[in-house]
Amino acid sequence: MSITPPVGSPISVASVPNLRDAGGYSAAGGSVVRRGILYRSTDLGAVTDDDAAVLEGLGIATVFDLRTVAEREVRPDRIPAGAKEVPLDVLADRDPSAAPAMMLKLLEDPVLAEQALGGSEASGHLLSSYREFVSMPSAVTAYRALYTDLARGFDAPVLIHCTTGKDRTGWAVAALLLLLGVEEDVVFTEYLLTNEQLLPALQPVFDRFRDAGGNPDILLPLLGVRREYLEAALTEMQASFGGVENYFTRGLGLGVGDVDALRERLLSRD
């Protein structure tokens, strides 16, 4: 007899950390977010043969890649056999010098990292990024396409990812769960699971940084997630649109029919 794992449990795929099902959460009106439909993770650039079989076992039919063009070129996905890939560059309008590629330079250079991250700059950078997820034109375009595809007959199950699966992906999943009627505190709990499921896999990064003479603690704001990051996006959403429903309709331009379809497809009332 199969046992359903607890909601939010990590799926053990060593080359794809931070992989989990975003379903199983209680939502409005006694409904539940369907399991086995919506997954989230890091990129698929290092998938091994054994792990590829595990991913294929999930039945993933569509992979939404929220990374920049440069990120995809450096580390192209190995998508599950038979799946289609949909690239959606959330940060296309971002200054390239502030793009995720800059993060890689910081991880390799403790002196540069100390200059950039030694104070509150890392947190400030992430707070700004999360506000941009709500309002930056390329983010609006990317998230509109994502949710529209999910509403209009997408091939499921789907996997949403960026590079570390924590920020661009974190907002994508958090906003959707809120729209589906999941309580905000529960959405924060799901979001913060990344600290448990991603950071241990990044221990070699912290170790290399320490070995190069750096203080690994300064990387935590950059490589982990914090409640205030998601709060920044929610505050921006509230100030600009007055709530999650208006964010989807006025901010992203989804029709009422698409919003209804998202709820119909992703919620179970059994």
Rank of each mutant, 00 (worst) to 15 (best):
A52K: 13
A52I: 03
A53E: 12
A53Q: 14
A53Y: 03
V54D: 07
L55P: 00
L55Y: 04
L55S: 01
L55A: 02
G57N: 05
G57W: 11
G57Q: 07
G57I: 03
L58A: 06
G59L: 05
I60E: 00
I60K: 00
I60Y: 00
A61P: 02
A61M: 08
A61I: 09
T62V: 13
V63A: 08
V63G: 01
F64H: 08
F64P: 01
D65Y: 04
D65S: 11
L66H: 01
L66P: 01
R67F: 10
R67P: 04
T68Y: 04
A70N: 11
A70V: 13
A70H: 12
E71K: 07
E71V: 07
R72H: 09
R72F: 07
E73P: 02
E73H: 11
V74R: 13
R75P: 00
R75Q: 13
R75F: 11
P76N: 06
P76I: 04
D77A: 09
R78V: 15
I79F: 07
I79M: 07
P80N: 12
A81E: 11
G82P: 08
A83H: 00
E85Q: 15
E85D: 05
V86Y: 00
V86A: 03
L88F: 13
L88V: 12
L88T: 05
L88E: 00
D89G: 00
D89K: 01
D89C: 07
V90I: 15
V90T: 05
L91Q: 02
L91C: 03
A92H: 09
A92V: 08
A92G: 12
A92K: 13
A92T: 07
D93Y: 11
D93F: 08
D93T: 07
R94C: 07
D95M: 04
P96V: 09
S97A: 15
A98R: 14
A98C: 07
A98W: 06
A99E: 09
P100F: 14
P100L: 14
P100I: 14
P100Y: 10
P100C: 06
P100V: 14
A101R: 11
M102L: 10
M102P: 00
M103G: 14
L104V: 11
K105G: 03
L107W: 02
L107Y: 04
L107E: 01
L107A: 12
L107G: 05
E108G: 05
E108D: 13
D109Y: 07
D109T: 06
P110C: 09
V111K: 11
L112H: 06
L112F: 14
A113Y: 06
A113L: 12
Q115F: 10
Q115T: 12
Q115E: 13
A116I: 03
A116P: 01
G118D: 11
G118M: 05
G118C: 06
G119L: 05
G119S: 06
G119V: 04
G119H: 04
G119Y: 09
S120I: 07
S120C: 02
